[in-house]
């Protein structure tokens, strides 16, 4: 996606309907055109698969963060009550695992949620100072935009435009970054 910030010239097909754009992705790909990305106002199930995006590995990150939370809680409780300052409260052993389960659970959830959301923001390049890369401002409202990077396609601009229109695009615009 480096060319996006450089001298990219894109053809943007604007669609009115989610089912049409999903079908269009398959048609355009079948015709041998490389699609840069599709922008939609809401998630369309199956669109990422149709575009050939790999399955997200966010779950792995979530698991690792959860594990770090569990470890932190285990170490914290074991160090404070089992080693640093042993105390017998309520007739329980100074280190007694079962009563630590609530704290272990909460820290697991906390670390997992914060870590995963942080990973999500970083991996998608999202942040408060990020300028959004918008191919069409209406894609957060009611339009679906399919962006095609002309520098990565051998087909002529006119042919791609024709293809987009025949796949159901209501309009085709040129966008230069």
């Amino acid at each position: 996606m480096a060319d996006v910030n450089g001298n990219g010239k894109f053809l943007v097909g604007i669609y009115d309907d989610d089912d049409v754009v999903l079908k269009a992705v398959k048609d355009v790909k079948q015709a041998g055109v490389r699609i840069h990305e599709v922008y939609t106002p809401f998630p369309i199930h199956g669109l990422d698969v149709a575009l050939g995006h790999p399955r997200s590995r966010l779950g792995i990150a979530a698991f690792l963060f959860a594990l770090s939370g569990t470890t932190t809680a285990l170490l914290l409780t074991a160090y404070t009550e089992g080693f640093d300052w042993p105390m017998i409260v309520g007739g329980k052993d100074s280190y007694s695992f079962p009563v630590y389960i609530p704290v272990i659970f909460e820290l697991t959830v906390l670390f997992c949620a914060l870590g995963m959301v942080g990973t999500f923001l970083v991996s998608n390049g999202l942040g408060p100072t990020v300028k959004p890369l918008m191919f069409d401002l209406r894609t957060t409202d009611n339009k679906f935009a399919m962006a095609i990077d002309l520098s990565k396609n051998k087909l002529a601009e006119g042919d791609i435009e024709q293809l987009l229109r025949s796949s159901g695009a209501a309009e085709v615009n040129v966008k230069q970054f």
């Binding site: 369309i44 669109l47 990422d48 779950g59 408060p128 959004p132």
Partner: peptide, 28 residues
């Protein structure tokens, strides 16, 4: 609203990850 929305542009890849994240957050 630009700062609050963190540069969101609704790309298919972001949405797919977003849905995945929502599911895990719901599970948590």
């Amino acid at each position: 609203y630009g700062a609050l929305s963190m540069g969101w542009n609704g790309s298919a890849k972001t949405w797919a990850r977003y849905e995945y994240m929502s599911l895990i957050l719901a599970g948590l």
